Computed example of a mutant assay.
Amino acid sequence: MQVLGVGPVDLLLIHWPNPAVPLAETIGALCQARRDGLARHIGVSNFSASRLADAVALADEPLVANQCEYHPRLDQSALIAACRRHGVAFVGYAPIGSGNLLDDPLLATIAARHDRTPAQIVLRWHVQQGTVAIPRSSNPARVAQNIDLAGFTLTDADMAAISGLARPDGRQFSPAWVESWD
Rank of each mutant, 00 (worst) to 15 (best):
G130Y: 09
C83L: 09
V132T: 15
I121A: 09
G87H: 05
V132S: 07
V91M: 10
W125L: 00
P95I: 06
S137P: 01
V132N: 04
A94D: 01
R84S: 15
G97H: 10
N100M: 14
R116N: 06
G92W: 12
D103R: 00
V88E: 07
C83F: 06
H114F: 10
P118C: 12
A82R: 01
V127P: 05
L123A: 08
I121T: 12
S137M: 04
D115G: 11
L123C: 10
I80F: 06
L102S: 03
T117V: 10
F90M: 06
V132M: 11
G97K: 05
G130T: 12
Q128I: 00
P135E: 14
G87Q: 07
P118T: 11
R116Y: 03
G97F: 05
R113T: 05
A133D: 15
R85S: 14
V127A: 14
L106S: 06
V132A: 13
T117G: 00
L106N: 03
A108P: 02
D104M: 08
D103Y: 00
D104R: 00
C83W: 09
A133L: 13
P118M: 13
Y93S: 08
I110R: 15
L123F: 12
G92I: 12
P135F: 12
I96Y: 01
T131S: 09
S98A: 05
R136P: 09
C83D: 14
T117E: 13
G130H: 10
H126D: 12
A119Q: 01
A133N: 09
G97N: 09
P105N: 04
V132D: 13
S137D: 04
I110P: 13
L79N: 15
